[in-house]
């Protein structure tokens, strides 16, 4: 893969082709003079159009890996390629622009701006790209309708339930049509029924084959939504289960 001059262009790989590749990635955190290695020579690939689950014990480095692969955290060593860009070689400003145009985020704590309405929140990624409010808001309402809460467009987040807030977050992650969606524990703040509804929505966003969805989770109830699953332990990818059948076989109680 070669790196185009700007961070906005997207090389769209065909469904099933590598979309995000990490090679020999290291990341450690420094606290005073104590250095904690968190990612150790990680090799990792996410395919175009798949929903990939990233699982593993607490503290094994899942969130760190997710942060590194979407460009919110700079790796110490190794190569990170995503949609035709070598993230590990881009300047911080270009990585920021890469995130603006390529990545949709879904967080455990939703992170909706409390003083903005649902529609205004959803419009944020478009606004970041310079789209006017007049153009962004109708699109945002469209997305809210698509995630089933079209009637809540004018509400502030604190007037919405957790599940509704996560739907707003999903709409926000989709509004600018990014090639990659990263989710960290998207269901752990939700009850079981709402969690399944949210996963159904996320599943749907990947299934058109153009979008890669990577979900970090602790929650075995949602294993069945995955196309593939990467299992981490102590800063390394232990194994990759390549199909729903393999996941079901490895985790029969999920």
């Amino acid at each position: 893969m070669s790196t185009p001059a700007t961070a906005e262009t997207t090389a769209t790989p065909a469904p099933g082709q590598p979309a995000v590749c990490l090679r020999a990635v290291d990341k450690s955190f420094r606290n005073g003079d104590q250095i904690t290695p968190v990612l150790k020579q990680v090799d990792f690939t996410a395919l175009a159009g798949e929903m990939l689950l990233l699982v593993g014990p607490s503290g094994c480095g899942k969130t760190t890996l997710l942060s590194v692969l979407c460009g919110t955290l700079h790796a110490d060593a190794g190569r990170i390629e995503a949609f035709g860009h070598t993230l590990s070689a881009l300047s911080p400003a270009l990585v920021t622009r890469f995130r603006a145009s390529h990545v949709g985020f879904i967080f455990q704590q939703f992170n909706l701006l409390p003083t903005l309405t649902a529609a205004e929140n959803v419009a944020v990624p478009l606004r970041i790209q310079g789209v006017s409010a007049a153009k962004a808001l109708p699109r945002a309402r469209e997305l809210l309708a698509r995630v089933g809460i079209g009637d809540k467009a004018g509400e502030r987040p604190n007037r919405l339930s957790g599940g509704q807030q996560q739907r707003v977050a999903i709409a926000r992650a989709l509004v600018h049509d990014p090639a990659l969606i990263v989710c960290d524990e998207p269901t752990s703040a939700l009850d079981s029924v709402t969690g399944h509804q949210v996963m159904d929505l996320l599943r749907g966003t990947a299934s058109d084959g153009r979008r890669t969805v990577i979900v970090v989770t602790h929650d075995p109830r949602i294993y069945r939504y995955a196309d593939r699953m990467a299992e981490m332990e102590d800063g390394r990818i232990l194994r990759v289960l390549p199909s729903p059948a393999a996941i079901a076989a490895a985790h029969p109680h999920a």
């Binding site: 400003a93 995130r99 970041i128």
Partner: peptide, 16 residues
């Protein structure tokens, strides 16, 4: 900070 961080993650530049 949390919300500014979210804006930043979503691709808002430091200048903005």
């Amino acid at each position: 900070t949390r919300y500014l961080g979210a804006l930043k993650a979503m691709g808002t530049s430091n200048t903005t």
